[in-house]
Design a binder for these strands. Structure first.
Lengths: 211, 211
DNA sequence: CCTACCGATCGGTAGG
DNA sequence: CCTACCGATCGGTAGG
């Protein structure tokens, strides 16, 4: 009956080992992301999450005041990680806009489909379940995300490489990519397999109009 | 206790008025679609649905064996209606592929956003909640839907108007359109308003490469 | 289609 | 972080 506690290794440490300070909370967020993605927010119980990290059913409430707060933590973590990866694409300021765009697209596919990248799909598909008061906070982060894309798309439009209103283009392109969360599987029948590099290249080919 | 009445439309019909034969079932499907779309399948109770059509909480089970069967009916109705509208676009065989494509796109936006068109969004966002046994039936209809799009996209690709693998193009284009279910509102601040005609035109501009 | 109801589940809490 | 538990909700059913 016990697959449980995980003795604190440190001397007087209460819950944090020196090597991994307070990673129980992080465990909960990561596992919750995976389960929410698989079964949805409503389809996942606190008990599911607790047991998946070796806790009893009441214990997650020691780390989170409510199930909704855990949902918000998942989304926040997703945007934090996503922003980091996305901003990294812009580090090289000498890159032509078209090349920068190709990397943004590839990065977004990674954010959706890399192993352990369950946070953003949860945000996309369980947005409805997030209480309004938490939404504001997440929207703030999401706006910074969008702004990065918008700058590059505006450039492409100015260069004549993008033939649609840049704001709508952003919504449509991110829509096309994000929707892959509903159909893309890393391991389909080997024959039909498309990897993320190929998928990204095809996305670029679809929307960029060479001059 | 099989819940399978279906009033015979004939002489001794029990609950059906002459003007509206057996429209209680249809009422349930329509109202369920709206509520599922707004609050999700798990976020909507049978009581919500029953009360919205003026029934008591147990009565929907006179028409549907389970909540899941009601969900399937919603999706089935959506695909039936969607297939009808989509096939209608193909009626004029003389239309050039590009024009046919433009109409397919516009039709799909209508299917997502016209008043009362809540069925397909439910399919898109609550697919996870449909039991596997029902999925097969819905997938069959969905495949016919996809096939219509695929034929037109294959033509566009052959004509050099579409610069991506046609199968991936279908997934990406329908993704871009379908994702509008998450952000498009018919009545935003009047200034930023985009109507469905404009949205469709911009989508075509984004992906078609004029030769 | 209604009344009356049940069994199970679930988020959350008290107290240690 | 665990034990033990509660109140509410919910899908579904019996019987008319």
């Amino acid at each position: 009956m016990s697959a449980r506690p995980r003795t604190p290794a440190g001397v007087g440490a209460k819950r944090a080992t020196p090597e991994a300070p307070d990673n129980r909370r992080a465990d909960l967020v990561r596992v919750a992301a995976r389960l929410f993605r698989e079964k949805g927010f409503d389809g996942t119980t606190i008990r599911d999450i607790a047991h998946a990290v070796g806790m009893r059913s009441g214990s997650p409430f020691y780390h989170f005041a409510s199930k909704h707060e855990l949902l918000m933590a998942v989304m926040e973590e997703g945007l934090r990680l996503g922003l980091e990866r996305t901003q990294h694409v812009l580090a090289d300021a000498t890159l032509p806009a078209a090349e920068r765009f190709a990397r943004l697209v590839r990065t977004q596919y990674g954010i959706l489909h890399d192993t352990g990248s369950d946070f953003i799909p949860v945000m996309l598909y369980d947005w409805r379940s997030l209480p309004a008061q938490y939404k504001r906070r997440i929207i703030e982060l999401k706006d910074r995300y969008d702004a990065i894309w918008q700058r590059t798309l505006d450039e492409l439009h100015a260069q004549g490489l993008l033939r649609a209103d840049p704001r709508l283009a952003r919504l449509m392109i991110l829509g096309a990519i994000n929707f892959s969360a509903t159909w893309y599987r890393a391991k389909p029948r080997a024959a039909t397999r498309v990897d993320l590099d190929e998928l990204a290249a095809q996305t670029v080919a679809l929307v960029l109009h060479p001059v």
